[in-house]
Amino acid sequence: MEKKDISENRLLYLKEKKQRKFIVLSFQIGILVTFLILWETLARFNIIDPFLMSMPSKIISTIKDLLLSGELFKHISTTLYETLLGFIIATLLGTIIAVLLWWSEYLRNILEPYIVVLNSLPKIALGPIIIVWFGAGTKSIVFMAIIITIIVTIITMENGFLGVDKNKIKLLKTFGATKLQTLTKLILPASLETFVSCLKINVGMSWIGSIMGEYLVSKQGIGYLIVYGGQVFKLDLVMASTVILCVLAGLMYFLVVLIEKSIKKRR
């Protein structure tokens, strides 16, 4: 075997792969840049109404103003706190409930219709009830984030637990394993991937919850900025807040992907 021949083919393969990656990336950036330039130009020449549509330069200056006045940090930290708290509590509590449902078939059968209904119910409908119960503050917002995230967590994790290979459970039984041992030695480690994809879903869910919560009741936060901006027709502020939201949600998702990569590496 000539090593040179193989490496030539290999080089070609790697080159093509690199090219492909480059093309994808340039289109991704190209679309964004074109979109921003088009937006900016159309707004400058009043082809689209800058008052209704805002424009990239104004969005940037709005963010800068928010940053300089110290407002930005306050709003971001408020929303981030609510989102993360909702995310963590819902993920942990949801997983624990899923474990209980896996544990007891009776419990699973009994609670099934309730979970189905709760899953279908638009959680925003509970808004007024939540405000009455938890007051017009952070508690209500966090609760909203939890209730939106937890149902999905329960369903995803329960399906993951129940989907673990029956033969592996049989194997543990032949060793005389207890239910707790089956859980810790098999079900939980086998569901790690499900858990990571659940985390990914939950990033989106907890943001929906916290922003929706802020729409209902809030004095500060990104969701508050969006609602406030809409009410006083400051579309620059609305757009700026949305951009900030995109960045934050993207970062949080990226963080989960990092966690996923470190887990995959260890396996």
Partner: peptide
């Protein structure tokens, strides 16, 4: 069993001593 049912997250040795852990 019909299939080896080794746990993919355990090393060969850890798989082999699994019954000892359980017992």
């Amino acid at each position: 069993l019909q299939r080896d049912e080794l746990f993919p997250w355990r090393t060969i040795e850890k798989n082999a001593i699994l019954p000892l852990e359980i017992k």
